[in-house]
Design a protein around this nucleic acid. Structure first.
Lengths: 155, 155
DNA sequence: GTGGCAGGTGCAACCATGTTGCATCTGGAG
DNA sequence: CTCCAGATGCAACATGGTTGCACCTGCCAC
């Protein structure tokens, strides 16, 4: 599959404009935590990414000056716990991370490519939930479309 | 979480009535493969299960006379490839397996319990897909509801 | 500014889940 | 009953994620 570095330069050449960095820094501080380079860089990456990324893709994208594997996991965990990022599992049973939208979307429509495994967030809202068996309580809805993304279909 | 052995006795005391066994045996033979005890036992289990099971839960349910770990993986793979079972990944990034319905459902509504991780197949059909970005092709739709199952909500 | 320390980072070892290679065994066709 | 393609079991490996612990550093108080 396409390296994320390539995706980034193709779709978002300026990842850390001052305003973006500042916004991210504030977002982190507001959670009452230290704004470390690791958190800032990772969150900037996620916000600039066109799709949910795996741990590995993030490592790639950080290039040189790579974070420790474990630190990256911990940063991602932290982001998820604080609600700044979302985590889901892909078909290859690996976690994928994406930045949480400012407003936040309780429900979600995704497209997952069966070929490259990437996950794309679609705009359209999923439909209302059907009725559940007795005793079940609903907290979230996920609407997943599967198939091939434009890139893999072309190749 | 609830052990599958308990689930089974609670909900389906007679797992392998002659007719069920025969039906399963036929299903396997029709795929042009050998009807081995491993395949028969696993498929019977899946058909009797009220929810999608992990590899581990299936091992538990087989109790004594347990299959080799690898054999179980291979049996499950085989069932999936032949279309007799479905495979999905749960929130704990493990695979879950369920018997394919006789008629087969191309699209699917699931309920996943955030507590115990179990997956329940709901009857209601998911809604139609929204429009996709250019170049994307759709092969399957998954409608996932998250929350707590009746059992975990009660506990 | 600068000191101190809660909180963040890096390293090494570990765990869970799934896969591969290969020798041995067996269902079922003939 | 015999035979062998196909199924099984074992051991080793791969991948993705987690834990424990010593060391480092933002950032607040001063």
């Amino acid at each position: 599959m396409l390296k994320f570095a390539a995706m980034m330069t193709a779709t978002a050449p300026a990842v850390d404009t001052p305003s973006e960095t500042e916004s991210v820094l504030l977002q982190i501080r507001r959670k009452g935590a230290r704004a470390t380079p690791a958190r800032i860089r990772v969150l900037l990456l996620l916000r600039a990414a066109p799709a949910a990324l795996t741990h590995h893709e993030i490592e790639q994208a950080l290039g040189d000056r790579m974070l420790d594997r474990v630190t990256l996991y911990r940063v991602l965990d932290w982001l998820v716990v604080r609600g700044l990022a979302h985590r889901s599992t892909d078909a290859q049973r690996a976690f994928r991370f994406s930045a949480a939208a400012a407003g936040e979307h309780g429900a979600h429509t995704h497209f997952r490519c069966d070929d490259c495994g990437r996950v794309f967030c679609l705009d359209s809202a999923p439909p209302a939930a059907p009725s559940l068996p007795a005793g079940f309580s609903l907290s979230r809805i996920e609407f997943d479309l599967r198939g091939r993304c434009a890139e893999c279909a072309r190749g």
